[in-house]
Design a protein around this nucleic acid. Structure first.
Lengths: 138, 138
DNA sequence: TATTTACCCTATAAAAAACATAGGGAATAT
DNA sequence: ATATTCCCTATGTTTTTTATAGGGTAAATA
């Protein structure tokens, strides 16, 4: 399951995607819309900004805004950013690889091989679904 | 990512799948083979037995053994049993459904719709990969 | 039938991760 | 100047995961 962090990030991106004509959106507005803690959401938006999905403006009239096209924001990226690996095991993670302690020989591990296939197929799904798909479903 | 519980369960099932000619296998043997805590593994095997994947025999000469065909043990089942939902959000889980607190109207939520699609496609993958596939990769 | 073996079951504790809050700092509009 | 709003780091709380403990029960064997 996704963490609340990732779930809230998706809600925030969706909200920002729906308000692209406005210049900026306040953290507070998104937080209130979904009943999320302001401060918790703030940390999430910060991460999204650092990752290049959002822009921000300080001071009165400031706020956040989307700087990427919704079609260029795949679920895979958002999940990786906030939740970490998409692979089901560390030993098959492309971005967060770690060997499994209980596995003596990765190259002869059937679990490893199958999980690598699962990873590839799962990635295909999550790379093809984007914020755009979410917005179209609203 | 899968919990260690699920990962160990897969190792145990694999071990039992590779030793089907022997009548039974000791918890201890599996635990030692993979450097897993005996007691932790015991709880996992217990769950697998209750779920109908394993049989057991008490007393001297006892132990565990596989009672299903490897091809009839899909990853989806093992994951659901030990880790819970396969869906990425509670609001699209088939077996562990819960509404999302921050979502006012599920039927008009784009995240919900996309995640339901992701769930369906992910399930296809995990239902088609079985213990048999793991055994063939060893 | 006594003894040993090995699974059965529940409870509890330790560690890690997730979730949330706090509070002052820096930039900007008015 | 001042109010507004994001920026950033640190810390606390809760939940989940991981692991351990210890006695109970059934079966084989002698």
């Amino acid at each position: 399951m996704l963490s609340k962090k990732t779930k809230y990030a998706l809600h925030a991106l969706t909200y920002l995607g729906k308000h692209r004509e406005n210049k900026t959106v306040l953290i507070q507005d998104i937080a209130e819309e979904h009943g999320i803690s302001h401060k918790f959401l703030e940390n999430i938006l910060l991460e999204l900004r650092k990752a290049g999905y959002l822009g921000s403006k300080k001071g009165k009239g400031g706020g956040y805004y989307l700087i990427k096209e919704p079609k260029d924001i795949p679920l895979s990226r958002v999940i990786r950013l906030l939740d970490g690996p998409i692979a089901l095991l560390p030993c098959v993670s492309l971005n967060y690889y770690e060997p499994c302690a209980e596995c003596k020989d990765e190259s002869h591990c059937g679990i490893n091989k199958v999980m690598a296939q699962v990873r590839d197929e799962t990635l295909k799904i999550l790379e093809n679904k984007t914020l755009q798909d979410i917005l179209e479903g609203e």
